[in-house]
Design a protein around this nucleic acid. Structure first.
Lengths: 338, 338
DNA sequence: CTGAAAGCGCTTACAG
DNA sequence: CTGAAAGCGCTTACAG
């Protein structure tokens, strides 16, 4: 049987209220009592019951970080990884524990809603949720503090943090165009991902009149293989395609492979650009021109915002932080224009 | 103010005990009461308080999955990722929620101990802990159910699951030797990682008399860059090195880079092998010969074992499951011997 | 500085 | 099938 605060109290010869006060430093306790309590705690191996404590405190200094598993390798994804580490670092510094929860089924969806709305966490950071996501909606409705990233607007009251996907894609598309590559096609992200639409809008906007929807191919998923397949389809539709904007580095890497296999040269025949500036992006052949984002910072901002909500501050409706991107020019798109 | 079981009871015209019984299906409730409760729950938006529930149940169907953050990209690591997904899948199927916790400081270490030992989780899966790890020791001492992987023995009572690192490395080393490559060096994993020593033992054992400690270089960390640096050091010590066993694919990839830069050919001048069969291992130039493990299965076994402990079953002392590996032969080590 | 008491929101014998 | 009561292990006014 696990020792409780009463066992410690008995051993120390004080009341359990005094033990609690000493352990939480909520008021001073005489030196004698303190020493006796210390000894009794050591003796019994006492550990406070977190559930009891959270029940009365209505708080447990814990924040859920919820991600949807897409595949086995779902977070062998440097962006997600950096976001998680960024959030964890900020939460940890403020002495909150981050609980990373993986959504892998409808049942797990309900479980996570019950857990978080039921007070097992003080709030939640939601990553890459879907349109009308059940988790996002249920938590918003139960007025659990939440913040989101890579997720469509849930409600005006839900703060968002995101990379400037539109500007990043539009900027790199414009630069690719400026290299003279023509025509320019797109390997769009998977249809299910909200971010795909935003990056696509950036692409389209940069192309203006030259935009040709025939040259836009959806990738089936965020994978090397899907990128390779999409590139093959693009070449089928337009063998003379001169430039390709891929919605991620991994898709771009797959595209590189297909282009090589087809006996074409990058960037001479086809210039290719990606998105993310993944850790290995400088090591593809040729090295990848891409859009750098700062996912660690995204995580830090998400953590900071959720802590603000948890600690009772208010943010304006439709609060959103859009973090800037930066173009990283490498050989896969030829010499940098201008 | 959040509605409680009493608010629901009042609205439904029954006692709160009946509400609890209905919600938990612990005993039958008259159809009328059931309907009234359903309506009252919907009306109030009632959600059971998990902390209160866990307090009385002494269980909350939750398992911690604890990992140590090594770097920003710490789990842009396909092995860890697959282990986490494997564990999550099994736990999720049995309706347990996995809580992934990242250790990033000594304070977080204490926080996690207090959380898990304090009953915020029913047990914990510990990954890649250190020798005499404070978390492992504290949890074992507080008799919280734990299982470990990639971790030195904590106590006889703590079950372990691991890839057969010794056999995998020894087998691939023997095959590399059989190709005729000579002399054979090793890019050992970082000194802090327990697995480094085991793989090294496999390497050494396969080499027998030919083992030369001068040809063993420690990588500073599990990174491409560290692999490249270690290879440079190895070439410095022995310019004629003919074969290299790297402790991971990422280290091997870095080594490939250094060898190319030095103007040498792989596998002609130097044959190189890795460990992990990472998703991209078939895409290095040349494709990497490596050791395949099944990290998803590792995760599933870990989950299964922790559930056994949580549900009160006993395992024999020193219980360990060592999962087999498989050699994946590709071009980086020349033609397969025999 | 400290103890007795009440209460956090549940679950579950115990009667009926 | 259902209610009144006790209790899970804490925290925190309230007195003293």
């Amino acid at each position: 049987l696990r020792p409780t605060v009463r066992d410690v109290a008995r051993l120390a010869g004080v009341s359990h209220a005094t033990v609690s006060r000493y352990l939480n430093r909520t008021s001073y306790v005489s030196a004698g009592a303190a020493a006796a309590i210390e000894a009794a705690v050591a003796d019994t191996g006492y550990r406070p019951n977190r559930n009891a404590r959270s029940l009365v405190n209505r708080r447990n200094r814990t924040v859920a970080f919820v991600v949807r598993e897409k595949t086995d390798m779902f977070f062998a994804d440097s962006t997600l990884s950096a976001q998680a580490v960024g959030a964890n670092t900020t939460l940890s510094e403020r002495d909150y524990q981050m609980l990373m929860l993986i959504v892998d089924s409808e049942r797990s969806e309900q479980r996570i809603i019950e857990l978080v709305a039921g007070g097992a966490a003080d709030g939640a950071i939601l990553l890459a949720m879907n349109d009308n996501d059940p988790i996002a909606l249920a938590l918003a409705e139960s007025s659990t503090p939440i913040v989101v990233a890579s997720t469509p607007v849930v409600a005006p009251s839900v703060p968002r943090v995101d990379t400037d996907n539109f500007a990043g894609t539009s900027e790199i598309t414009a630069l690719l165009r400026a290299t003279g590559a023509r025509p320019v096609g797109e390997i769009r992200g998977p249809a299910h991902a909200p971010v795909s639409a935003i990056r696509h809008d950036g692409f389209r906007s940069a192309l203006g009149d030259e935009y040709d929807e025939r040259l836009v191919v959806d990738a089936a998923e965020w994978s090397f293989t899907a990128g390779a397949a999409a590139m093959a389809e693009l070449l089928r539709r337009e063998p003379a395609v001169g430039g390709v904007v891929a919605a991620s580095d991994l898709l771009a890497a797959g595209a590189l492979e297909t282009v090589h296999t087809a006996g074409l040269q990058v960037p001479h025949d086809v210039a290719i650009v990606g998105f993310d500036d993944s850790p290995w992006a400088a090591r593809t052949r040729p090295p990848l021109t891409t859009v750098r984002q700062d996912p660690r910072r995204t995580g830090e901002r998400l953590a900071d915002l959720i802590l603000q909500l948890i600690e009772g501050e208010r943010l304006p409706d439709d609060y959103a932080e859009i973090l800037p991107t930066e173009i990283v020019w490498r050989e896969s798109a030829g010499p940098r224009p201008r």
